[in-house]
Design a protein around this nucleic acid. Structure first.
Length: 493
RNA sequence: GGGGCUGUGGGGUAGCUUGGUUUAUCCUUAUCGGCUUGGGACCGAUAGACCCCGGUUCAAAUCCGGGCAGCCUCACCA
């Protein structure tokens, strides 16, 4: 905490500073914060490359699930936003466009926050009958809104990377099964590919998204023990359908309102969470599948030995093209820096595998290989390299995964009483699993009391995937009445 | 939105308390040349800064007010 500016922060003791540094000029150069508009940041190439991959994972997933791509405009007419406010009851804080040149617009336009109010008026036109259902669309884009006071790269912004699906169904059962699919998509992407552990919650009734009947979120834990929400799915019931007149004619010939859901993985936050969870004091650590450079080759040459140096470069280039043919993303670092500088540089960037090639290796007909996740340098015979790489890639990811899962599990604790919650949260933060009286509106009082007495611990929700068993003797950790649910509570980002 | 801290070449900083020999320190960086490369090499030359607006003063990087931006923290949170 007392770190002077300019000194290097360490992740364990000073997560916030560490995170700021790794994002910036002295770190992996992910962003440039010198754009001078609060909450609007410049994405530099290294972050863009990873973010685009994350986008592509979700695009693939939702397309497999029969969603079609769409792109709606950047602006929304005011009356559409107001309509939502009337019916669904929430007002986003948006940026307004009021002028074109020096001419004031007749009706002002909002820079889009989320898609509901821009998409559903059109859905209302597109859907005529049950034959048009289910309708499943998505868009990948940037969004803006300004109700976050404190901004941080990838975790909170006023403009950020966004992804949203908007689905329309005939029946509520279909909507529920879509929510389950959304959960599976989160598992396939962030857990399996990015190695980010999370829990999928149904939020308590008093804390659903305004305009939704139920809200579901994927929540993970940052290294400072705070909970971060990385996706949300809303069961919108008929609320928006009524506001925007999304109806269909059924088989029975009657008009009915449709059931809607929307799903939004937070692309930015997922990236930020991945940086935070996997990184160490040397820099980023990237899962193999998202690394912009998966294998970096560092040739080590000597002026005094031009012949060996020439061979080193030849071998470097040969391996580069061979590995490229095997679909690895490879880079030979030919810059005029010392090897030590390059090692540090690529470690900071999180490149999973490094190959060093020097004269000493040549003599042995080998290369020196190491994974970002281990300090170990391995001598690998050149003809065995192709077999060794997949193994190393897998090992790299396995270390990331196991470390992340261990941290996650260690930060879920059980408590039976308010005092236990307090003492746990003091040392561990993370999630506390507690028996709770009610997740319906009547539980709100206990949630508020919990929050006040613990200095900010929120009830995040209860597991959606499985009903967790309560002992018949279990009582609410706050009020002592009979418990009806196990809930998870945590301090939030 | 509250509280605290901060803003000096591209990056990191010294100087600010107590206004004036400051020609603004050092490191890094960039360019050129030389030398060099197995964990952030070295030498030489060159380049490059007091966030913006206002105030106090003979005099402001330094003090005061405001703005903008960043960091930390609390609150909020689609």
């Amino acid at each position: 905490m007392t770190d002077k500016k300019g000194s290097k922060a360490n992740k364990q003791d000073n997560f916030s500073e560490w995170y700021s540094q790794i994002c910036g000029e002295t770190g992996a150069k992910l962003v440039d914060l010198r754009y001078d508009v609060q909450g609007f940041i410049v994405h530099r190439p290294w972050s863009m490359r990873v973010l685009r991959k994350i986008y592509s994972f979700f695009e693939e997933e939702v397309e497999k699930d029969n969603h079609e791509p769409m792109l709606f405009p950047t602006v929304i007419p005011e009356e559409h936003l107001l309509k939502e406010k009337e019916h669904a009851g929430f007002t986003p804080e948006v940026f307004w466009v009021e002028y074109a040149g020096d001419k004031k617009l007749e009706k002002r336009l909002a820079l889009r926050p989320t898609g509901e109010t821009q998409i559903y008026p059109l859905y209302s036109l597109w859907i005529r009958s049950y034959n048009d259902l289910p309708l499943k669309g998505y868009q990948s884009r940037i969004t803006t809104f300004r109700n976050e006071m404190t901004t941080r790269p990838f975790l909170r912004g006023r403009e950020f990377m966004f992804f949203e699906t908007h689905d329309v169904f005939e029946t509520h059962d279909e909507a529920v099964s879509q929510i389950k699919k959304d959960l599976i998509m989160m598992k396939n992407t962030i857990r399996d590919k990015l190695k980010i552990p999370f829990l999928f919650f149904q939020r308590p009734k008093w804390d659903v998204f305004k305009g939704a009947d139920e809200t579901f979120t994927s929540d993970s834990i940052l290294p400072d023990g705070k909970r971060i929400q990385v996706s949300s799915t809303h069961d919108l019931g008929h609320n928006f359908a009524k506001a925007f007149n999304v109806q269909f004619v059924g088989k029975d010939g009657k008009r009915s309102y449709a059931f809607q859901t929307c799903f939004g993985p937070g692309i930015w936050r997922i990236f930020g969470t991945m940086i935070a969870i996997h990184g160490d004091d040397q820099g980023l650590m990237l899962p193999f599948c998202v690394a912009p450079v998966q294998v970096v080759i560092i040739p080590i040459t000597f002026v005094k030995d031009p012949e060996a140096s020439k061979k080193v470069l030849e071998l470097s280039k040969k391996l580069e093209s061979e590995l490229k043919n095997l679909n690895y993303s490879v880079l030979v670092d030919l810059t005029n820096k010392t090897p030590g500088f390059k090692f540090n540089e690529w470690e900071m960037k999180g490149v999973p595998i490094r190959i060093e090639i020097g004269p000493r290796d040549l003599e042995q007909n080998q290369v020196t290989v190491s994974a970002r996740t281990s300090k170990e340098k391995l001598a690998v015979k050149i003809n065995e390299l192709k077999n060794k790489l997949p193994e190393l890639a897998e090992q790299n990811d396995k270390v990331l995964e196991e470390t992340a899962i261990k941290y996650f599990k260690d930060n879920i604790k059980n408590a039976k009483t308010l005092d236990e919650v307090k003492s746990i949260i003091k040392d561990h933060r993370g999630f506390v699993r507690i028996p709770f009286c009610s997740v319906m509106l009547d539980g709100k009082k206990c949630a508020e009391k919990l929050k006040t007495e613990t200095n900010g611990v929120d009830v995040c929700g209860f597991l959606f995937e499985k009903e967790e068993k309560l002992a018949s003797s279990d009582t609410c950790a706050v009020c002592g009445k009979k418990a009806t649910k196990i809930v998870y509570a945590a301090k939030s980002v």
